[in-house]
Structures are given as structure tokens and as C-alpha cells.
């Protein structure tokens, strides 16, 4: 998909959103809706401008570099896993598993290298944040942090 079509889609979607914001702003009690209405109107103007530009623009329409779907999905799953594990089993275990997975699957490191980096980095995070700075970390079932 070219950038022109992406821009048109974005302008249409955000334009509709901004129209709804202006309508909501105008219905708000007192002067609470003044700035949302102004911001929404600014957004509508910008969407119109972006939309019109896509009709007459000749350059700057190179398609963005193709998204590597496989790597994007792996990375997305790793991040999702990190988030879920952080609150279910605890931060330290989640960080260790997240690092191990991403270093193995995305960076292509060997097991030994991946495990060493994951363990050292997780220990560093634990020492700096939990011990030195006293920052609370999300705890899960394994609640040592």
C-alpha cells in the first residue's frame, strides 16, 4: 500500500474522530468543551489538508519499507508475554523469559549467550531498581519482587 492511501485512510479515520470530538465538546457543560472543540476543529482542518495533499502530491509517495510480519509477530508475542507474566508470575521471572525469548528468536543468539545476557541483565535490573533505588516492581505468584 502506498503512503498516499495510508494518508487518506488516516485522514478519514481521524477526521471522523475529530468531528465527534467537536460535537462532544460543544455539548459539554460550561466552558469545559471549548478547548476540545478547538483541538478537534484544528484536527479536522489538518485532516482535510492531508487528504487534499494526497490528491495532488506527486513526490513523497514511496511505500514504507515492508513490515517483516514474522519478526513483528514474534516481537509482539514476546511483549504481550512480558506484560502478562509480569502481573501473573512476577517481574524477575517475566524479564528473564522475555529476554531469553527475544534474544533467541529475534537476535538469533545461541542458548549459552542468550542465557548469560538474560541472567546478567535481569540481575542488574533487580539490583538497580529493587535494591538500590527501592522502586517497587510488579509482583505475581512468585512474589520475591
Amino acid at each position: 500500500m502506498t503512503l498516499k492511501w495510508i494518508d487518506r485512510g488516516v485522514a478519514l479515520l481521524l477526521g471522523l474522530g475529530c468531528t465527534m470530538i467537536v460535537a462532544t465538546g460543544l455539548m459539554m457543560r460550561g466552558d469545559a468543551g471549548v478547548i476540545p472543540a478547538i483541538a478537534g476543529s484544528l484536527g479536522i482542518f489538518a485532516c482535510l489538508g492531508v487528504g487534499i495533499t494526497t490528491c495532488k502530491r506527486a513526490g513523497d509517495d514511496a511505500p514504507p519499507t515492508p513490515l517483516p510480519i514474522y519478526r513483528f509477530s514474534i516481537w509482539g508475542l514476546c511483549v504481550l508475554g512480558l506484560m502478562v507474566l509480569m502481573v501473573s508470575v512476577g517481574t524477575i521471572v517475566a524479564l528473564l523469559l522475555f529476554l531469553l525469548a527475544s534474544l533467541r528468536l529475534l537476535a538469533g543468539l545461541g542458548w549459552r549467550q542468550a542465557i548469560s545476557i538474560a541472567v546478567v541483565f535481569t540481575a542488574l535490573i533487580y539490583l538497580v531498581f529493587a535494591q538500590l533505588l527501592g522502586v517497587p516492581l510488579p509482583t505475581g505468584q512468585l512474589s520475591f519482587t
Partner: peptide, 23 residues
């Protein structure tokens, strides 16, 4: 300008400091 407008809209989210209504 479009992303700035989105930023201004996001800045409006929350309880209004003057009227107390949710936005």
C-alpha cells in the same frame, strides 16, 4: 498539525479542573 491536534485532544482527557465533568 494533525499530530499536534491529537496531542491537544489527549491533553483534554480527564476530569475538567473547572467544572469537574469527565472528558
Amino acid at each position: 498539525m494533525l499530530t499536534a491536534a491529537m496531542g491537544l485532544v489527549l491533553a483534554c482527557v480527564g476530569l475538567d479542573a473547572f467544572t469537574g465533568i469527565q472528558r
